[in-house]
């Protein structure tokens, strides 16, 4: 859907796109296509970092609860 946009500032990204891109960043691997298409602001990065940190801890705690039940 982004193919029409060339030589312009990338359009405002949807929440899903931002989350997807930053997820890969958090994992430590970049998907080139994701990056070149959207622009992410520092505020989005910081909010994602905090949320992803909480999700990370939450996931592990859930796993721990499952294995110790």
């Amino acid at each position: 859907m982004m193919d029409a946009v060339v030589n312009e500032k990338p359009p405002k990204a949807t929440l899903l796109q931002v989350v997807r891109m930053l997820f890969w960043a958090f994992f430590g691997v970049r998907k080139r296509v994701e990056h070149d298409k959207i622009e992410v602001t520092p505020v989005q990065v910081v909010i994602f970092g905090i949320v992803a940190g909480a999700v990370f801890v939450g996931t592990l705690v859930t796993v721990v609860i499952l294995v110790t039940r």
């Binding site: 960043a25 958090f26 430590g28 691997v29 970049r30 970092g49 992803a52 940190g53 990370f56």
Partner: peptide, 15 residues
């Protein structure tokens, strides 16, 4: 993988 180096460094810092 310059960008992935930046992100990996940030991830390590958060973790």
């Amino acid at each position: 993988g310059y960008a992935s180096m930046v992100y990996a460094t940030a991830s390590i810092a958060i973790l």
